[in-house]
């Protein structure tokens, strides 16, 4: 390593590598390539089946241009209502439970045992896939929207309490300190010190979660937990692509409306 110009002139220049150690770099490159080869080999694609499927795929694309809303209108209406109902109810219940758990999981205002319990609830809820939870709840509560509702509420708790706890942890401590200095009780401290800072964010997150819950409620039906998913599943099973396309279009439309609304509401509260 020399810094004089003469030794540098005429020498080629190479960008210093991202991974400094050559051995590690090559291990990573070869490892990645090896994985790619093995992985690609283990998916054996039945190309003739795929090829035959292209027709059906095309049929589906056509169905999107020409969706059939009418022949199963009643099923779609019932399924959709159920999805919306599940999304709404689970978001409300989820928020109601998330607030105490979120407070308990914020290290700066909670005591250690409560903190640990709340954090484990959050970790469990986040680790379990909604579909897996729904399967178990369907086995326990039977088919229907109740299982879906509980699933979504549980998922909402993991999502909202974690974000809420983080929000409280990074919020402006000074403001909370100022209220504490006036000798306020725990509840007063929450209402006057924390609440005004966190509430706009909480509203934004809740709307966002309502959006997610609706999307999720559209799949829960596949495992029997109520909602439009069941109708969709049936449509696919009967190869009624035009009905399936209609349902998907409705889902996309509702998701877009929700996203648009949540954008407006978040802009207004923040």
């Amino acid at each position: 390593m020399s810094a004089t110009l003469d030794t540098r002139l005429g020498q080629p220049w190479k960008k210093p590598p991202f991974v400094k150690s050559a051995a590690l770099r090559w291990t990573m490159i070869i490892g990645a390539l090896l994985y790619l080869v093995l992985a690609l080999n283990s998916i054996d694609v039945n190309w003739s089946r795929v090829y035959r499927g292209l027709d059906r795929g095309w049929e589906f694309v056509i169905a999107f241009v020409n969706p059939d809303f009418s022949s199963r209108a009643n099923d779609i209406k019932v399924g959709l209502t159920e999805s919306v109902v599940m999304a709404l109810a689970s978001t409300v219940v989820g928020i109601a439970i998330s607030i105490p758990i979120g407070l308990g999981a914020a290290r700066n205002i909670s005591v250690l045992p409560v903190y640990l319990v709340c954090r484990s609830v959050i970790a469990l809820s986040r680790a379990l896939n909604e579909i897996v939870v729904a399967i178990l709840l369907v086995a326990i509560f039977g088919f229907g929207p109740l299982a879906g509702f509980i699933t979504l509420s549980f998922a909402t708790i993991g999502f909202l309490s974690k974000l809420l706890a983080e929000e409280i942890e990074d919020m402006d401590r000074v403001q909370a300190e100022a209220v504490r200095a006036t000798g306020a009780s725990w509840l007063q401290r929450y209402v006057y010190g924390i609440h005004p800072q966190v509430i706009p964010r909480l509203i934004g997150l809740s709307i966002y979660r309502l959006d997610i819950n609706f999307r999720e409620s559209a799949v829960l039906g596949i495992v029997g937990a109520g909602g439009i998913g069941a109708t969709l599943n049936t449509a696919f099973d009967r190869y009624e692509f035009d009905t399936a396309a209609a349902i998907l279009l409705v889902i996309i439309a509702i998701v877009m409306v929700l996203e648009y609304l949540s954008g407006i509401i978040r802009a207004r509260v923040q």
């Binding site: 110009l5 005429g10 220049w13 190479k14």
Partner: peptide
């Protein structure tokens, strides 16, 4: 691919040397 002609690389070294930053090249 960062494969500039050697004349460009040399010129870059010369300029960096001129402004006193040759040691910072990388």
């Amino acid at each position: 691919l960062r494969k500039f002609p050697q004349s460009d690389v040399d010129e870059a070294f010369r300029l960096l040397d001129r402004v006193g930053l040759l040691a910072m090249a990388d």
